[in-house]
Design a protein around this nucleic acid. Structure first.
Ligand code: SF4
Ligand code: SF4
Lengths: 152, 152
DNA sequence: CAGTATACGACCGTTTCTGTCCGCGTTTCA
DNA sequence: TGAAACGCGGACAGAAACGGTCGTATACTG
């Protein structure tokens, strides 16, 4: 159920890693994969997806690799998940295309759609920068605070 | 990815249906299944899970069936999901037991755990009663409003 | 040119999800 | 006293999603 895929998980890790190394012009998929123990070829494909979605900039050839295309603050977890796993839907009934065959009789469709939007909002309010928070040395310096209003 | 299972989906529908019929002493699994077109045997097992978790009260025999064990306002979506799909975790690394094998090197574990709690909070703030909101006839009468604070 | 890197698609084993079946215990009612 | 209506529980099978690998083509560097 409500679980991130490992691909999205890996994608977030990779972006965080890139956010933590802003000095380097580019990091290869293998570099990042080795840093965490992620299967390299799999990570490569994930990074390709992120590139295709415009979150990363890639560069082939020696000393090539990937770099963030924007500031880490401007990349939300929602975008990452969307880029890797496709459209974000809590339910099986995507409003656009084919859905679960009992959409007509279903009465919780609309309420759940609002829940969906709420959770999407939470995800949207989280940036890669937030994840990359460096070692809050003194105590527990709260970094980001977002207010989400749930409206049913 | 972040998607409700159909079981949880069905479970919510069923509870909503029960909440909408407080007068009847009990509704059978078949009654509810027929009302929506849900596979009856599957719904039956779902209702059994909800009963085992104490959200429903069951009664065997003729004219038996299920009834809410508490007021619809006191049953949260979180409880339903938890009862049907088990512990709620966004990531594959449950803090309790065996997890994804790269937990040691992983650096987004803690931040994601907080995201997990936030989403769980959202789900906890939604009750069956909220879903069962009867026809907001005039315009769009906002029913419930919950405030969730996201703290990374 | 040789070496390093991304790009892209095919493929496959595993797990999870969805749904069905069957036999059993319980309650009601004729 | 028995049949019917119902919940309970496990086993199981088909389908889909996931996680991961491989091979090959392409692009860039020096
Ligand atoms: S239609 Fe109702 S049942 Fe089918 S997916 Fe959407 S919400 Fe779940
Ligand atoms: S450990 Fe890191 S990678 Fe493994 S599941 Fe938890 S978060 Fe995802």
């Amino acid at each position: 159920m409500l679980k991130l895929t490992k691909k999205a998980d890996y994608g977030l890790m990779a972006l965080k890693y890139l956010a933590e190394h802003p000095e380097t012009p580019a990091l290869s998929a293998k570099d990042i994969a080795d840093a965490y123990g992620i299967p390299a070829q799999l990570l490569a494909k994930i990074l390709q997806l992120l590139t295709k979605s415009g979150l990363l900039r890639s560069h082939a050839g020696m000393n090539g690799g990937y770099a963030l295309s924007r500031d880490a603050r401007e990349i939300s977890a929602y975008e990452v998940i969307h880029a890797i796993d496709g459209p974000f839907f809590i339910t099986s009934c995507t409003k656009g295309a084919k859905s679960c065959d009992l959409t007509p009789s279903c009465t919780i469709k609309e309420p759940l759609a609002r829940v969906n939007d709420t959770i999407a909002g939470v995800l949207r309010s989280i940036s890669i920068y937030d994840l990359a928070e460096r070692e809050t040395p003194a105590g527990r310096a709260v970094a980001a605070q977002a207010l989400v209003t749930l409206t049913l």
